[in-house]
Amino acid sequence: MLMEQGRTRMGPVHHELAGEPSFAPMIQIDMEIKAFVSAWRHCDYVSTYMARMISQNRSDSVRHSNLFSSAFNELLEVAFRTRHADGELACRVSRHGATDRIELTFPCVPEERQFYEQAVSQVAGTEARERYLNSVSGDLAPSREVVLLELAVDYNATFRVEEAEGDAIRLVVDLPLEGLEH
């Protein structure tokens, strides 16, 4: 079971930027990255579990949970493919109004860090939708960048990359799922 390998925290989140709205902590799961990458199904486990936990008080808990799990699983699959073998994975979810914030901290090698910084800056670009459609119609299997593009295009997600301790990177993703239309 996942929970035997990881730890679940519901403590305070000390992570705010000046001028940003205050996000209230919801849940956090930490795991050794070695334990996490030992089984692919951990992505599904963690995304499904956390989606259920945080969706209970949304206006439509089941729908919210389904959407959140769908988006979060993609991010976990991205983290799963890290080339760095040591360190910790931290998944933290906090909330401000209709927006849920995922903070995914995971170890990565310097080239990957550079890749994420570049990918996130491109996701914010105006041609994100076109690039996503090109990737769908292309022959190549979806890259990590395409995963981020899809979240931006289909879920209105916004991204930020932050420094984290050691060889880790923190991907901050805001998901306004409560406002997504049927």
Binding site: N66, E74, A141, P142, V146
Partner: peptide
Amino acid sequence: QMNNAAFH
């Protein structure tokens, strides 16, 4: 649920 890899 369907991940991007399967969708593609």
